[in-house]
Each structure stands twice: as C-alpha cells, then as structure tokens.
C-alpha cells in the first residue's frame, strides 16, 4: 500500500503555492494535514503528479478575529482550533471539532483541508454551512469568496477550481441571543457520522425565532440545509421542534449502505435535527437570560 510516484514542491508563500497550482493544473494536488489524502495516496485511489505541500507557508496557520467573525487560515490544525479561545465567538466549530476523527488525526488534519475535501459525512463542512460561513479561494487570477452553500457541490467535489487554493475559511460570529448545537450518530467514537446534525438559531427579546439554520450531513452527496424559513417569527415549542423533525426527514434522500439503510438514516436525521434544534434553542434562551 504505497503511493504512486509524485514530485514534491514546497511553497513558502501563498503566492508560490498558487503559482505551483497554476503551473500543474489537474496534475497538482495540495497536501494539508494529509489525514484524508494520505490514505487515498497510499491506496493509490489518487495519483497526482505533483504534491504541493502547503504546510510551511508562512502565516497560513493563523486564526484572525474581527467584528464579523473568524478567519481560519489554510494550515490551522483541528487540534489548535479546538484550543483557540478566539473560536469561542463561533461556537459551532468548537462543538463539531471533537467529532472529527481522533486526537491524533486532529493534531495534523486541518479545518480548511476537511472543507476542501468535502466528504459528504464530514462534520466541518456541515458546521460551515450551518454557520453561514464562506471559503476564501486564491489563484493567480485573484481572490474570491464563495459561500459554503455554493462551495459544497457534491461528493468530494467543490466549487474550487484546479488552480485555486483554499486560503481560509470564514466563520461569522454568532449574534447575540443565539445558540448552536452539534450532534451526530456514528457507530464508534471518531468514525464518520452516519447522520450528523447542526443548528444555529437566534431569538429576539421576546424569545421568537429571528434566524434559524438547521443542517444535516451523511444523508446525501453533500451536507444540506433544511428549509426552515417559515419558522422565523415562531416561538420555539414542541410543535416547532416536531416540524423540524418532519422537514429534516422530508428534505433528504439518503443512500443505503453496509451500516445503515436509507430508512434508518431518514429516521435518525429527524431525531438528530430535532435534538440539535432543541439544544440550540436552550442555549439561545440561556444566553439571552444572561444578556
């Protein structure tokens, strides 16, 4: 189980990295943490001609915070993000991270790499989607910012073009009186989720829902958002939670595989959607009472 031969380039700046990507086109491949790519290379599922190692790019491992949110650089490790206090402003990512692999894989795996990889069962793309975050892409042609919903196209497929590098992911700060929650069902701890769910809600002063995003992963080719626009303005209640459960189940067409049938996934999707919604509301209410 050894990789096919590849050439190696090690850019020290983003400019060098995008130059390399521009030069090699589809033959080039970025390696970030290598926690997904390493296995694919070893199994010879992929055989890029050139590996572009972005791990030594100066400054790419920084987390920046401003009024609008957090910018997580390309080589920020999952374990560093988990520890970083700036990420308290965007709690959903912190909620999701412990579910991503293991202590040892988080030591190396990156936030951006997971999102660029776009595994349909992965936690972080779902978290970014539900946070209404975005991806910052850079190429020789310039920089563009693509909303998570547009970035995540399908199984292992994103809106990133061959010559682009994900230089950062952007996580908006949670507004006041908001709450979020993440939960998932996996067979063993550290496994990819059979169903993962995330919710982010905000309430107004009287406690009505002013914004709500509930999403699911593991149930299709990419993480999805449940259409909840009609619930804005509602007061959180059991009825609303039931509605979320229902909508979750209706908005997916999952597959059957060795671990779970489509029907079982659909069933779990409802349960977990409701679970994260309830938890997010609870937190928003607690947060509001503390404000």
């Amino acid at each position: 189980m050894k990789p096919a031969p590849f050439a190696y380039v090690r850019p020290l700046s983003i400019a060098e990295a995008v130059a390399a990507l521009g030069e090699h086109g589809s033959a080039g491949r970025i390696i970030a943490g290598g926690q997904s790519l390493g296995a694919m290379l070893n199994m010879r599922l992929v055989a890029p001609k050139v590996l572009v190692d972005i791990n030594r790019i100066a400054g790419a491992n920084s987390i920046e915070k401003d009024r609008t949110g957090i910018r997580v650089g390309a080589t920020v490790r999952q374990s560093d993000a988990l520890r970083h206090t700036d990420l308290n402003a965007t709690p959903l990512i912190k909620e999701a991270l412990p579910h991503v692999g293991h202590f040892q894989t988080r030591n190396r795996g990156t936030i951006c790499g997971s999102i660029a990889h776009a595994d349909p069962s992965a936690e972080l793309p779902l978290a970014l989607l539900v946070s209404d975050g975005a991806v910052e892409l850079r190429s020789k042609r310039g920089t563009r910012i693509v909303a998570a919903d547009d970035f995540l196209v399908s199984t292992l497929t994103t809106a990133r073009r061959e010559d682009e590098m994900v230089v950062a992911t952007l996580w908006p700060s949670a507004p006041a009186r908001s709450g979020c929650a993440f939960d998932e069902f996996a067979i063993r701890g550290g496994d990819y989720a059979i169903v993962a769910a995330a919710a982010q809600v905000s309430l107004d002063a009287p406690g009505n829902i002013t914004s709500i995003r509930v999403g699911l992963a593991g149930v299709g080719e990419r993480p999805i958002l449940i259409d909840t626009s009609q619930l804005i303005g509602d007061k959180p209640s059991d009825g609303v939670a039931e509605e979320i459960m229902d909508r979750a189940r209706r908005s997916i067409e999952p597959i059957s595989d060795m671990q779970a049938s489509a029907e079982y996934r659909t069933h779990l999707a409802g349960i977990f959607a409701r679970r994260v919604f309830d938890a997010a509301i609870r937190r928003a209410q607690e947060g509001a009472s503390r404000v």
């Binding site: 069962s121 199984t155 990819y192 080719e221």
Partner: peptide
C-alpha cells in the same frame, strides 16, 4: 460509501 454520490455527480 461514496459510489452512489459519485454516480449522481
């Protein structure tokens, strides 16, 4: 795990 999604894609 990914085949069905890949086919759709």
């Amino acid at each position: 795990r990914l085949i069905s999604g890949a086919t759709k894609l």
